[in-house]
Nucleic acid binder design. Sequence first.
DNA 1: TCTATATTTCTGGAATCAATGAAATATGGA
DNA 2: TCCATATTTCATTGATTCCAGAAATATAGA
Lengths: 128, 128
Amino acid sequence: MEQNDAVKRLSALAQEARLQVFRLLVKAGPEGLAAGDIARKRDTPANTLSAQLLVLANAQLVRARREGRSIIYAANFDAMGDLLVYLTEDCCGGRAEICSPVVEAAAKALCCAPPRTRTARHETRHRR
Amino acid sequence: MEQNDAVKRLSALAQEARLQVFRLLVKAGPEGLAAGDIARKRDTPANTLSAQLLVLANAQLVRARREGRSIIYAANFDAMGDLLVYLTEDCCGGRAEICSPVVEAAAKALCCAPPRTRTARHETRHRR
DNA sequence: TCTATATTTCTGGAATCAATGAAATATGGA
DNA sequence: TCCATATTTCATTGATTCCAGAAATATAGA
């Protein structure tokens, strides 16, 4: 991921209204929400919301699809994941032990993950 | 973590120069770097850099300490972790399976323990 | 004390951004 | 076709942000 994209995504999220809209869409899941529903739910004029969604869409944090007269917006979880990777990758450059707060925080965030991935439970053999 | 803090941290990172400074400090680790060293390394006027560091410090993404004539700045990994949690927590609200891209991305970011053991075994889908 | 070094604060101007009224575009149905 | 609904685009306004010159502050050493 390029720095320009990261800045664009961070900028898109770095504003109260847009961050709320994005979180709303994250909660809504892949089915998304119609622009009009978001506008009503947030009590925001349609054109104001449209501009906010445009910023999020340009940053690829949300995707739009038309359904009849409505345009449905949905969070783009892939893009979100890319951003997280970008923000954390340097942290691990060479000295993972330094970043333990970040690692722990992320692990906490991931505690909801159902599946596989052996969670490095203890680090008795991580000489490298 | 409050939304205001999240917006403040996202805003602090949502600018090319500051993001670069922050990443520099992340790489530098807990010992940090003197403001002057950063200014030289980045070829930025001292006052401009000072303003950039102030924004990062107000967002609690970096911390300052004096050492002789120099002021040493270091990344605050705890604050970084809090931000990651904030950005991901809603994603998992109730339906973790939906967020698998985010979860996978974060897991990938966390696999920093072994440097270059092939970890990528998930299909890349192009959409950009 | 005086001087050099390190960094910050003050200031102003250019650039960018956010919100909204008004107008335009797109869709579906009678 | 005409109309209502849904959303975007245009244009304007006010607010915020970014940068850097100049001046101020803090520290160390002679």
